[in-house]
Nucleic acid binder design. Structure first.
Lengths: 240, 240
DNA sequence: CTTGTAAATGAAGCATATTCATATATACTG
DNA sequence: CAGTATATATGAATATGCTTCATTTACAAG
């Protein structure tokens, strides 16, 4: 129970433990971020966190669990900021643009960690059973909601499944982020994202111009079909 | 020099060496493919190839070099088949469709290997200096050429850089391939690729060409429909 | 002050990639 | 064909790095 606040630095025992846990996570983030998961040594993480090697295992079951902790913090922030960012945006297009900008910015920043981070998860066919998958799932839920909303508003085409849109959106952005990071000329982030959105939005949005993508052919077919159907329904009650 | 062909199994010394090298690569492909790079044990590869553990290191500097050998074979085939496949295709749109189908099919098939395969390369910021990057570069050159050609023909929009198109194309397809592989319901590959192309082509192709987004399919349907309607109208002579 | 418990330590254990001293097979030479 | 140099092969030894564990230290309660 709480007796009194000791004037010394660390307060209660529990608090000191939490602090240490944070220190280890912070150290891990730094070391993972430097050269990726594989090259990161537990020894270095321990040293940075100011603990013995064995202590790390008092807090995390193994190296993967440590990565998961780092990834969880990252995804929590990412998801939160994504959800927060679209709140004030009124239309589907600007929401998607925001999500794209936000994603690329964050991913490009934490690239070394991320590229390897999800690897232990993504590698296997059982990816779906991993916690890493769940983190990602929660994150992309923000995107999914924007799309569903967009469909209700009539902004988004309905002939392509959500999952396909999601894959193209995030797959494309991830590659884009990587390219951005590698480029020696450090091409402008905003400009690149704009360009990506030019392709993506045209492909996903049902815009007035795109309604007529096929030159009205589909409409003509549908019209004609309706007429025939009506006629068949009214006349022949005999079908096979 | 070639003396005479010995009737025994292995011919010249050089040939036996090459055979063994191939055996090791084949074993490595199998083992990498099973559970990815990390979980693959050199010991198992050696056993499968019928050599001692140390022998592997006579042929390949280390595990990474072995992966590179496997990846090189994969990419060589991939690149060759891609280049071959588009040769007979006349228009930009069908070429892109072919490249997409081809890519997804191959990537989905060799997923466990690939997902980890490029990881040791992709992880670092020096990716561009790796041989893995070069393999990829050569491969996507096929795509780049299709796009450049498409631009000359006026099929492809010019307001978005090639690199952006490339990233979205292959990034999207990679994610799509992964999803396809994970799906328990094993969604139809062709259908999924079609859907992806619906987004990608609208985004990349120039409008006028997009008037005919479905390659004239709608027109064909309409024609057929008209004929059927006419026939129905004339035979069952009951009109309203 | 004593003692039980939580927390921490770093040396030992273990799994694997890689190296190396040694052995074997092959080709060449006289 | 024997002798020898060279290429090839071996598997035990080494190195590295994650993980465990017996021991120690710090803390809180009585």
């Amino acid at each position: 129970m709480n007796k009194a606040v000791r004037p010394s630095r660390p307060q209660t025992r529990r608090q000191r433990v939490e602090e240490k846990e944070q220190a280890i996570i912070a150290a891990a983030r730094a070391v993972f971020g430097k050269n990726g998961f594989d090259k990161a040594k537990i020894a270095e993480i321990a040293k940075r966190a100011g603990v013995a090697e064995g202590t790390v295992y008092l807090y995390f079951e193994n190296k993967n669990a440590l990565l998961l902790a780092v990834a969880t913090e990252f995804y929590d922030r990412l998801t939160h900021d994504a959800a927060e960012g679209i709140k004030s945006l009124p239309d589907t297009k600007s929401r998607l643009a925001f999500l794209a900008r936000h994603h690329v910015e964050r991913v490009a920043a934490e690239w070394p960690m991320l590229s390897t981070a999800m690897m232990p998860f993504k590698a296997s066919d059982e990816y779906r059973q991993t916690e890493g998958y769940q983190l990602n799932r929660t994150y992309v839920e923000v995107f999914d909601q924007v799309i569903r909303d967009g469909i209700n508003r009539g902004d988004i085409r309905t002939d392509v499944p959500l999952s396909v849109m999601r894959d193209i959106f995030y797959g494309g952005l991830e590659y884009g982020a990587r390219t951005l990071r590698m480029r020696p000329d450090r091409a402008d982030l905003d400009e690149t994202v704009d360009q990506m959105m030019q392709i993506l939005s045209v492909g996903m949005l049902v815009k007035p111009a795109a309604v007529d993508t096929d030159g009205g052919a589909a409409d003509a077919v549908l019209d004609r079909l309706e007429k025939i159907a009506t006629r068949l329904e009214t006349t022949a009650a005999t079908t096979d």
